[in-house]
Amino acid sequence: MPKTFKKPEALSDQKTHYCPGCTHGVIHRLVAEVIDELGVRGRTVGIAPVGCAVLAYNYFTFDFLEAAHGRAPAMATGIKRVRPDLIVFTYQGDGDLASIGMGEIIHAANRGEKFTTIFVNNAVYGMTGGQMAPTTMPHQRTTTSPFGRDVADVGMPVKMAELLSALQTPGYITRQTVIKPKHIVRAKKAIKQAFTYQLEGKCFSLVEVVSTCPVNWGMTPLDAIKWTEETLLPYYQLGDVKTPEN
């Protein structure tokens, strides 16, 4: 069925600084589409992380904060507690959320803060030059694991969605990806669900999006998608890990 397609209003005209084939752009667009569809642009506050998305505030057309490394969930807590009427989301990468900001995200989720986290997991530190992340796969080479991740030395990659789901506080935790159109459709549905839970004041919500980093992985954009499918997705399985109902 033919349809129209245009840039959502919540997305700005600015060209992004992301590398060719990096899926940050897709995820940005999905967030913007959801905000448009929910009609909440005028009361949304986004929080940019330290990481490749540090400049995210340039790419949206609503209020933004830029956080220190890993602290976005604490900032979101601060806003949401004093202005529960605002729609607040953090946009964080794997180094930011799963390493330096592990404490902040766990406690925010455990308190059941009513904001939404978009967690972009591409198994590597993108911004600082391709170093090992907590989510780097076993044997995956990075600039600080030149011989491949040695799990005997640094442990296994962290499955954040499952880890957060172990908390007893109700929440919506889901893992998605955006490597193919069918995934993009599901990811958008999940993001919309997450924001809807927030709008209803229901629970904390987190959408982990398994993403690509062609440049730091040393692959073409298409090879990166293939590698995601073959290597990341069997370990980082897609789907809802926790819903507030169970």
Partner: peptide
């Protein structure tokens, strides 16, 4: 009551920023 003083300082940031 925040989980640490580090987190508290950013809760303050968030609340003051709005």
């Amino acid at each position: 009551q925040g989980e640490s003083e580090v987190a508290v300082s950013y809760m303050l940031f968030g609340a003051a920023a709005c």
